[in-house]
């Protein structure tokens, strides 16, 4: 008997960057109308100081997405530090409405006993951790970026009822800190930062002393300069039985890029064709897939190397 291979759902991760509220709202309106995503994650995950700007437009964004038939999940902060952030987290957890994604283990604790998602910045590396979180109500887990394909394969299907999601596109969040590097680069303090992170819609470029592009700073978050690109790995992810494939928003056309990933997942487009189209949709972008292949995350291997 042939085993039916299910096709993974496509999801859109939360906007990581400090976009003006209007741009942020319009981005999601267009995703609602034209994006090929089954699930859309919304919410400020990097800096608590930004959240008030999005709060006024959040309800209409959620409503528009839901009306368009998308599942909406509210993403929550990566780092819950001092007493104020802890209190805000408790308030978020107490609200009824869309399902929440925990990006700090403290939030996962607050959501115990009801269905919730585990985000990619919660450390899930093995079957026993996954199983424990499932027993406490987690229904979906987006695995950390640094997990190699071999680990993903082991975790898919390891725990009944726990869907596995893998991030396949966008700059890779590599670290989070209490310190704001955007403010530091502008010689400002975090408490009086003037929201300078808004100046870099895809993150602030960080070069080495040789002038080589290296990282991107997004407030307290440090990302890779290169964009993760698992287009060439989609057939493998599908064969593993991965439940969801997530793209992380950048200022590129995320509707068109979503359609590319969807087409490859559906077997409607060859990987080589999709790679060449992505290069046009993300002009100047350099790509990486090293983590998936068990190598340094920055590396571009296999079909990705051939495409460069």
């Amino acid at each position: 008997m042939a085993v039916a291979v299910k096709t993974p759902d496509l999801t859109l991760g939360p906007v990581l960057f400090n976009w003006p509220a209007e741009r942020w709202r319009d981005f999601y309106f267009r995703i609602a109308d034209e994006g090929p995503y089954r699930t859309v994650y919304v919410g400020e995950v990097v800096c608590a100081k930004r959240a008030p700007f999005f709060a006024p437009v959040l309800p209409e964004v959620i409503e528009r997405l839901v009306r368009a038939g998308k599942e909406v999940v509210l993403s929550t902060p990566i780092l819950i530090g001092g007493p104020r952030e802890a209190k805000e987290a408790e308030a978020m957890a107490a609200e009824t409405g869309p399902m929440l994604e925990a990006n700090d283990i403290g939030m996962a604790a607050l959501l115990a006993g009801r269905p919730h998602c585990i985000g990619p910045t919660v450390n899930v590396y093995n079957e026993r951790t996954l199983s424990f979180l499932a027993r406490r109500g987690a229904v979906r887990c987006t695995l950390p970026w640094e997990l190699p394909g071999a680990a993903i394969e082991r975790l898919v299907g390891a725990v009944p009822g726990m869907a596995i999601e893998v991030v396949a596109f966008g700059r890779i969040p590599l670290a989070i800190s209490a310190r704001c590097y955007h403010a530091r680069a502008h010689e400002l303090a975090k408490d009086s930062c003037r929201y300078v992170c808004a100046e870099d819609a895809d993150g602030m470029a960080v070069d080495t002393l040789d002038g080589e592009p290296f990282l991107a700073v997004n407030g307290t978050q440090t990302l890779s300069y290169r964009h993760l690109n698992l287009l060439a790995e989609l057939p493998a992810l599908r064969a593993m039985g991965v439940d969801c494939v997530r793209l992380s928003p950048q200022t590129f056309d995320m509707v068109a890029i979503g359609h590319l990933f969807r087409a490859v997942l559906d077997g409607a487009m060859e990987v080589a064709e999709a790679l060449s189209r992505l290069a046009k949709l993300a002009p100047g972008a350099r790509f990486a897939n090293g983590f998936f292949r068990g190598a340094a995350g920055v590396e571009a291997l296999g079909a990705l190397a051939a495409a460069e």
Partner: peptide, 17 residues
């Protein structure tokens, strides 16, 4: 400088985390 246990900088550059 980064929150401990949540830093993939070394893995990104060297493959060892």
């Amino acid at each position: 400088v980064m929150a401990e246990g949540r830093c993939a900088l070394s893995g990104y550059v060297t493959g060892h985390s």
